[in-house]
Amino acid sequence: MILVTGVTGTVGGEVMRRLPRGVGVRVMARDPGRVAGVPAGVEVVAGDYGDVVSLGRALAGVRRAFLVTTRVGGGDDAAFLAAARRAGVGHVVKLSAAAVLDRGAGDVITCWQRVVEEQVRGCGLEWTLLRPRAFMSNCLSWAASVRGERTVRALYGTSPHACVDPRDVAEVAVRVLTQEGHAGRAYTLTGPQAVTAVGQSAVLGRLLGAEVRFVELSTAQARAVWAERYPQPVVQALLDSAGRQRAGAKARVEDTVREVTGRPARSFAQWAADHLEAFTPPAGPVAAGGPVPPGEPA
Rank of each mutant, 00 (worst) to 15 (best):
G47L: 02
R133K: 05
M136T: 10
D51P: 06
D107V: 05
G56A: 10
P132N: 02
T69N: 10
C123Y: 07
C111E: 14
K94C: 07
A82M: 03
V89W: 06
A134V: 11
D76H: 13
F80D: 02
V42M: 03
A98L: 13
A87C: 08
V116D: 04
V115R: 09
Q113S: 08
A99N: 10
G104H: 08
D48G: 05
L59R: 00
R64T: 09
R114Q: 11
D51K: 01
R64F: 08
P132K: 00
V115F: 10
Q113W: 12
G37P: 07
E126D: 15
V44Q: 03
A105C: 11
R133H: 15
R64L: 08
N138E: 12
E118P: 14
E118T: 13
F66A: 00
L130E: 00
A82S: 11
G75D: 07
D77Q: 09
K94P: 04
A58H: 04
A78G: 12
G56I: 01
G37N: 07
A78S: 11
V116R: 00
G124I: 12
V92Y: 02
D76I: 02
V38Q: 06
G73S: 04
L130T: 05
R86T: 15
V52F: 08
R114H: 07
P132E: 01
S54D: 11
T70P: 07
V89M: 06
G61Y: 11
V62P: 01
R103G: 15
C139R: 00
L140Q: 01
W127C: 02
A79R: 13
A78D: 13
C111Q: 12
V68D: 02
P39D: 13
C139T: 14
A98C: 09
Y49E: 04
G61E: 12
R121N: 05
T110F: 05
W112K: 00
W127A: 00
E117P: 13
A98W: 06
V116G: 00
A87E: 11
A36R: 12
V92P: 05
A84M: 03
L55F: 04
D48Q: 05
T128H: 04
L67R: 00
L67P: 07
G75Y: 03
A65H: 04
I109H: 03
K94I: 07
V53C: 02
R57A: 12
A87V: 08
G50H: 06
A46G: 12
V92I: 11
R133Q: 14
C123A: 13
C111K: 04
R121E: 15
R131F: 09
L130S: 01
R103D: 15
F80H: 02
F135Y: 15
F135V: 04
S137T: 11
G56S: 14
W112H: 14
V68H: 01
T70H: 14
G41C: 05
G122F: 09
E117W: 10
G122P: 14
F66M: 03
E118Y: 03
R34Y: 03
G37W: 07
R131A: 01
V120H: 01
L101I: 05
R86Q: 15
G124P: 14
G47K: 00
D77F: 04
V100K: 00
S54P: 13
A134M: 11
F80N: 00
A99Y: 12
G50Q: 07
A97T: 13
R71W: 15
R63Q: 14
L129V: 15
R121H: 12
Q113G: 03
S54T: 14
V62G: 02
V52E: 15
A65S: 09
